[in-house]
Design a protein around this nucleic acid. Structure first.
Lengths: 199, 199
DNA sequence: CTATTATTGTACCATACGGTACTGAAATAT
DNA sequence: ATATTTCAGTACCGTATGGTACAATAATAG
């Protein structure tokens, strides 16, 4: 428990966490730039001055939403990869997750943001760029370890593989978000990853 | 020559072709939704009522711009493919074209529109969907003919190959538009297309 | 010259946007 | 009780948007 000391003024009722979660879900479902800030305030039920006080504007809200999404969706994938199960097995798991109907909207908020870089605020753009690098590194390291175990194509350098995996998974998620048939998406992903898994 | 008959009223000064060309170039350079309609009118130097009369609104202008782009950029590629030179040779040519600095902006207007489907007007969305199908068909037929000549992986069905080529080239163009280093983009494309060209 | 037809663009409309002053409310401190 | 501190949201600001009415213009027809 945190210190239950009573602060001075009027107690805060604005629930930052709920707002961020709702905003992330909305951005995920409806895209990053279909909604105006006014509309977003209505959706997440927060007054505009409240939003400005808490996040400084749309840019700050979007950064918070991205971080929230990262913790809830991307990080678990990275945890899975860190377990170093057989490469093909982990890959199949990710693809299955990416191409199956879920409760969550199809696609990926992070992938959506990457497809809209030019229209992001400066803080969000910077965060997206940093996360992109992080993602490439994680994929690259994952591939490097698999390569050391002899499970993947040794001709492909880990840095290239990291970028390639990133690109291909992103492509899968973009297609899913666009409503492409999961079967076709999976078949294409199968082709794309053959080059990594064969001798 | 067309009939030089003199029409009744005030002569038309609005140059549809130039406007469409300028609009296509602007959309290509700056994306499809960064600009307001007002701003676009300033860029292509046409009055707003003029634009409405000629195109019916932004949706109509975008369709016209897409068709213009298609004729000037995409169709020549299809002509190249129809020549049935060796598959690997044509593919290398396309990749070279896609990943090299040109006078035109990087990336591809059609790819950009496909990444923004949700924000397109109904006419533009319909045209993009039709062009996407056309593109897949052209790629699929191209692959089928190469397969009949024994130049490509016979295990891949032409329809899947068509979708795969479309996806991978689109990915290349999206990355180029995002300013990714051409060398990395090329290296990834090389990996992606290996599965089609090896026995 | 006058009427007719067709095209042009200014000037305007209602609406929505991002952004903020400012008043009121809800707590503690004295 | 009164002052003080903090948070909340209404109500407003200037600006830009998509969209159009309408008067001016430039040609031909009679």
């Amino acid at each position: 428990m945190a210190a239950p000391k009573k602060p001075r003024g009027r107690p805060k009722t604005l629930n930052r966490h709920d707002i961020v979660a709702a905003a992330a879900a909305t951005y995920w479902r409806e895209g990053v730039h279909g909604l105006s800030l006014n509309e977003m305030c209505r959706r997440v039920e927060v007054s505009k001055p409240g939003l400005y006080r808490e996040f400084g504007g749309e840019d700050g809200l979007m950064v918070a939403a991205l971080d929230h999404y990262w913790d809830r969706v991307i990080s678990p994938v990275f945890v899975l990869l860190a377990q170093d199960r057989p490469f093909a097995e982990s890959l199949a798991g990710i693809l299955q997750w990416a191409t199956t109907e879920r409760d969550d909207p199809p696609g990926c908020l992070f992938a959506t943001m990457r497809s809209a870089t030019s229209r992001l605020g400066p803080a969000t753009a910077a965060r997206v760029a940093a996360r992109r690098e992080e993602m490439r590194t994680v994929y690259g390291d994952w591939y490097r370890r698999a390569r050391e175990r002899g499970e993947v194509n040794a001709d492909v350098a880990p840095e290239l593989a990291g970028r390639y995996i990133d690109t291909q998974l992103r492509s899968v998620l973009v297609q899913m978000a666009a409503g492409e048939p999961p079967g076709w998406v999976r078949a294409q992903a199968h082709l794309a990853f053959q080059v990594l898994t064969m001798a």
